[in-house]
Computed example of a mutant assay.
Amino acid sequence: MTASSAAAATATAPVDRKTFSHAEFDLGDAVLRPWAPADADSEPLLDALVSAAADPAIALWNPITSTDRDAARAWVEARHGGWERGTSASFAVLDATDGALFGNVTLRWTDRADGLAMMGYLLLPAARGRGLATRAVAAVTDWGFDTVGVRRMEIAHAVGNQASCGVADRCGYLSEGVLRESFRFGDGDYHDEHLHARLAKDPRPEGN
């Protein structure tokens, strides 16, 4: 192959957009940024994750393993590792003023080759009740469609988790039915889940 033909081949080669490139989002009262290695050494963040694991709503509907500082450190490292492996993009949701932890939003591939991804999110108690989960999920959803090449994005939550259902609805994820006893939650029981989904070609909700 000549130099000119090699250049032409490079120019016409398809670009793999299905790569999680680091991004940050300014929501005014909060910022979203990728979890970083330095976060594993931040005692305030680790302690906030320990508190999150003990919160009754999180422990039931979105249990995390950060029951002490060592476990929280491993949890942070796993979130950063998802970025490094290209399997997931986890964003710390932080207070824009003092950097206190508000929560987490994760977008992960379920079938990268086919452009299928799953959205997950949690908020600590002090951050609830002001639409922050909706704003954070909307930001990461748009990013996933616009820059990552997601074709279909799903949210699955326990039928009893009405707060999560509201977030999915407000972010334009259409309800597609009930998955019967599809996931074992923090109480040890299998619960039915609502399945919501958005396609890249779906219209965006007004206000997003």
Rank of each mutant, 00 (worst) to 15 (best):
A72H: 00
T110Y: 10
A54R: 10
H80A: 14
D98M: 14
H80D: 08
R73T: 10
R79M: 13
A96Y: 11
R85A: 15
A54G: 04
L107S: 08
G81M: 10
T106F: 05
I58T: 14
A100K: 08
G86E: 04
T87V: 14
A78Q: 14
E84D: 13
F91E: 04
P56Q: 12
L107M: 15
G86R: 14
G86A: 05
T67P: 00
D55M: 11
F91Y: 14
A57M: 10
G86H: 07
R85L: 13
W83I: 03
T67S: 12
F102L: 11
V93G: 08
T106V: 15
A78S: 13
H80W: 08
D68E: 03
R79V: 05
W75A: 09
W61A: 09
W109Q: 01
A57I: 09
R69C: 02
A59H: 06
G103T: 05
W61Y: 13
S90D: 00
D68W: 00
A89E: 01
T87I: 09
E84K: 12
I64T: 07
R73Q: 05
N62W: 15
A57Q: 11
A72Y: 00
A89G: 02
N62G: 11
W61D: 12
G81A: 11
A74N: 03
N104A: 13
L94P: 08
I64C: 09
V76A: 07
L107W: 05
A59M: 05
S90Q: 02
R69N: 01
S88H: 03
D98T: 13
D98V: 11
G99C: 06
E77W: 03
